[in-house]
Simulated assay, not measured.
Amino acid sequence: MRRWAMQAGLCLALCAGAASAAPAPTWRGLDPDNTLVIDTSQGRIVVEMRPEFAPQSVARVKLLAREGVYDGLLFHRVIDRFVDQTGNPNNRDGGTSSHPNLPPEFDFLLKPDAADAIASRASDGITGFVGATPFSASQLPRPDGTLRAAGAYCAGVVGMGREEDPGTGNSEIFFMREPSRRLDRSYSVWGRVVQGLDVVRTVAIGEPPAHPDRMIKVRVMADLPATERPKLEVMNPRSAAFAALIRKVRAAKGADFSICDIDVPSRSQP
């Protein structure tokens, strides 16, 4: 009975946004302090970073961007329908920055009111979004009401690379060309591409590529002059339009539905 009551309370908390009096706007802007702008040889990639998922990884990416470490680095390992890897100062696997390695941030504690949208519920857990980044979580809350959650490696999700030791994240980052959920809870998720997934998918393939593409300039959006910032809006996951999108995709996919079936729309600011 106590477990049922906890789950019922959790449901009420997670659904609270839908019951609020003022409807959420359909579109939202990006937080300049947590948006990464990557100009590559194939075009621009914009990443919404999520410190709720991996605060130390986000802080490291910002630091390296501001130090200029990422500027000019190659996409040194690119596997079709899987990942684009970059971020190693030596342009190959195993290179690191001058900063210490990071601890693993493979999962995190999700406060019920921090989930912006719930996409599915099952006996073994829930899936949903924080911002544009998908997650999966336990259905059963911890004593403090939080859920044990992890980023879901869908297309466009960005992760922190590492060696065999889980505590060896440092500077390498990777971009998912397609979903690969086997990476869940094995690599730290720190955000998702909200513009430029087509760029991610056109980066030259190879291990290493014969003619590799590169990150030309990597900057935190807050550091850019207003005139140079991406004029971009993302669909608000708390909006009625996003709820309708989830319902539409779930109806189309039926029993095969996955959180990775939902692409979060973005648009140029009107």
Score class of each variant (00 low, 15 high):
G128M: 10
N170V: 06
G159N: 06
S186F: 05
K253D: 02
I262S: 00
G161S: 05
A210F: 09
P143R: 08
N91Y: 09
I126S: 04
A132C: 02
L64Y: 13
V83P: 11
N90F: 01
T96C: 00
V78G: 02
D71F: 01
F135P: 07
A152T: 15
A22C: 03
V69F: 06
A243N: 09
D107M: 10
G159D: 10
R28S: 08
N170T: 05
P23C: 06
N90H: 11
R181H: 14
Q42I: 04
D33A: 15
A222I: 05
A210L: 15
A155K: 14
V58M: 00
A16N: 09
F108T: 06
S123Y: 12
T35R: 08
R81M: 12
A240D: 15
L36W: 12
G206F: 12
L73V: 05
P208T: 05
D93Y: 13
C260H: 02
G94F: 03
P103V: 10
A132Y: 02
R44F: 02
P104G: 12
S266H: 03
L102D: 11
T26S: 09
S120G: 05
A114P: 00
F175K: 08
A240L: 13
G167L: 04
R182V: 15
T146Y: 08
Q195A: 10
R66F: 08
R3M: 15
L64R: 13
D31Y: 06
Q7S: 06
S120Y: 04
A150S: 13
V83F: 13
V37R: 07
P104H: 10
P179E: 13
P134M: 02
A252R: 05
G145Q: 04
H99A: 13
V193A: 13
P89R: 07
N88H: 09
M176I: 04
T127D: 11
R229N: 03
P209M: 02
S41G: 07
T86N: 10
F135H: 09
P270D: 03
T133V: 12
R50L: 12
F75T: 00
L140T: 14
A204Q: 14
V193L: 11
V47Y: 05
S180K: 10
V78Y: 06
G159L: 01
R219M: 01
G161W: 01
I79L: 15
P103K: 14
R192S: 12
G131Q: 00
V46I: 05
R81K: 14
C15G: 15
T86M: 12
T86I: 00
N88K: 03
F82W: 13
I118Y: 02
A150R: 14
V58Q: 07
A149C: 07
Y187P: 07
R192Q: 14
P179R: 09
D124G: 11
G167Q: 08
L224R: 09
D165M: 10
A204C: 08
S180L: 13
I118S: 03
M221V: 01
Y153K: 05
P230S: 11
R267P: 03
D80H: 14
S20Y: 06
A19F: 12
M221R: 06
L63P: 03
I45F: 05
F108W: 15
G29F: 00
P112C: 01
L73G: 07
G159R: 06
R250C: 04
V78S: 05
Y70Q: 05
K217L: 11
